[in-house]
């Protein structure tokens, strides 16, 4: 029971909520956070797509170093990094086990390792960008880049509603616990407790969704009374919403440095 206690203390929903919100909104004061959102989106598009097509080990390693630097600059939350590491580790383990079934041996670790590096580059780029880009700016940037207003608003509203949902989820789980009964024997390695909690987690989604559906009625009406439909087809409103966008010296510097670094990696790969 104690192991459960200490784990659940650290990973309380409160904590997760805090970390998520910090990742989403707490970005204003980092170097990356002050850049123009459009710069970040373009930068991300490059690092989310290009690594898939690169097999050169030197380029991948130098990209990885670049991403580590970015992660440091963005001050990514430890929880997110922890989850990322778990994800990468389990990915390589699972793939390795699968490869054994298909006649692989220890030698398959090599290619798997490079695949993982590739994934790490892409994941770190995503994490760094989303830590630095608050959903408001991201949504405005999408709007400015021509994405329909309904989509860009959903991004921003999705984040705004997140804490509310987590809180409600928490309360529903508590309702189950207050009126439920845990198994009397914990079982080997607490498996019975695990099953009990998993069952509650799954069951809790239904009330959450039903309550959410009820709530959205007010939201939809209120959106209309606040003139949202008026804004979706109006170019002037779009301009007004994104009037604060502007490229600064730092943006140019950041882009120039990135191009220089990418160029350098490719050059290195040719000579070595």
């Amino acid at each position: 029971m104690n192991m459960y206690k200490s784990l659940s203390d650290k990973f309380s929903l409160e904590y997760v909520k805090g970390e998520l919100l910090k990742t989403a909104y707490g970005s204003g004061d980092t170097f990356l956070g002050r850049l123009d959102p459009r710069t970040l989106i373009f930068w991300y598009l490059f690092f989310a797509i290009v690594p898939w097509f690169i097999h050169n080990e030197i380029i991948l390693v130098s990209f990885l170093l670049f991403m580590l630097m970015m992660t440091y600059l963005a001050r990514v939350s430890r929880l997110i990094l922890f989850i990322l590491c778990i994800g990468l580790l389990s990915e390589i383990t699972v793939l390795f086990i699968i490869s054994l079934f298909f006649g692989g041996d220890l030698a398959s670790i090599g290619p798997l390792f490079w695949l993982t590096i590739k994934l790490a580059v892409i994941s770190l780029a995503s994490v760094a960008i989303f830590t630095s880009l608050d959903p408001e700016k991201f949504s405005d940037a999408l709007l400015r880049l021509g994405v329909p207003a309904q989509v860009s608003f959903s991004v921003s509203y999705g984040y705004r509603i997140l804490p509310t949902l987590i809180e409600e989820f928490h309360k529903v789980i508590l309702s189950y616990r207050l009126r439920g009964k845990p198994p009397e024997k914990t079982g080997l390695l607490y498996w019975r407790m695990g099953v009990y909690y998993m069952k509650i987690l799954v069951l809790s989604f239904y009330p959450l969704i039903l309550n959410g559906a009820k709530r959205s009625r007010t939201t939809v009406e209120a959106l209309e009374t606040k003139g949202f439909s008026h804004s979706t087809n109006n170019q002037d409103v779009k301009k007004l919403k994104t009037a604060y966008f502007s490229f600064h010296r730092n943006d140019y510097f950041f882009i120039a440095f990135s191009i220089f670094y990418i160029g350098l990696s490719f050059t290195l790969s040719i000579y070595y």
Partner: peptide, 10 residues
């Protein structure tokens, strides 16, 4: 009455 749901922005 459920005014919390009409708050749209963060």
């Amino acid at each position: 009455q459920d005014f919390e749901n009409q708050i749209m922005r963060p």
